[in-house]
Amino acid sequence: MLRLILFRLATFIPTFFGVTLVTFAFIRVLPGDPIVVMAGERGLSAERYAELMHQFGFDQSLPVQYWDYLWGVLHGDLGLSLVTRKPVSTEFFALFPATLELSICAMIFAVLMGIPAGVIAAVYRGRLFDRALMSSALVGYSMPIFWWALLLIIVFSGNLNWTPVSGRIDLLYYFPAVTGFMLIDSLLSGQSGAFGSAVQHLILPTIVLGTIPLAVIARQTRSSMLEVLSEDYIRTARAKGLSPWRINGVHALRNGMIPVVTVIGLSVGTLLGGAILTETIFSWPGIGKWMVDSIFRRDYPVVQGGLLMIALMVMVVNLVVDLLYGFINPKIRKR
């Protein structure tokens, strides 16, 4: 197991440098530059343009700029946002808890709904429930997030008035952010009703963001369960007269879970991607919306810093998933 951890960690380092290079290059490949976008319709003189390019250091050669960036990153400094003039890392850590809270809720929702649904569909293969489930999973997977979110808002917030339209908590509640996680902060605030309001505000965004991972997990669980259920040892278990609950829930599920865990790990990337749209629609103050705004404004430090942090996050999750395999499947540990 130790060897596995060391091996995975060793591959982490070159990947990290690769990511810094890609994030640095990505934003510079896009046409347009931050200074022209800042000036807008008004425009600015050539001298003023050159002056600003110099002030922000964009007149230096790309290798020099990259080196400055890398040097900063290695010292934990992601630079200042060109727009707000605040440190990128400060902004990131102020917004990230909101994204993390929403992503965790969406993932819990997807796993809690997706795995049982997949198992049941596999056990009752070909029956009505299976077919209904698989068709809705396909619909869920292919549905545009934007449309789905607006539909839910119009029905549940607009017509039925069950849930709030957007935001993280009712604006009547006001307390300082301690952890950045609204569910925790609202409890810490001691204000009655704050926690309930935070939960209400989470419901629709969680469903929207969790829909695609839910569909993927349900389908993956079903197919890997079907595979496992046809294995010899399951027949043996049946022949031994074990209860269906024990066969499906313990023997089959544990082995069926390996591909599902992979899918869950990979979904973290999807979640962060989906968070961009979900956050925009629900006015959720997370990093997705922040990144999109920054790309439009060509805010180089925010885009490269933010992408790097997100990439690091995905890499760490995948590392954890790799290590989890070892836990679930002893064969992998020996490699």
Binding site: L150, G158, V165, S166, S283
Partner: peptide, 20 residues
């Protein structure tokens, strides 16, 4: 006075309707 930052125009309209 409170500003509720809401970037999507359709969502702003829904919030206005709901008196948010």
């Amino acid at each position: 006075l409170i500003f509720a930052i809401t970037t999507d125009a359709s969502v702003r309209y829904q919030k206005l309707k709901a008196n948010e």
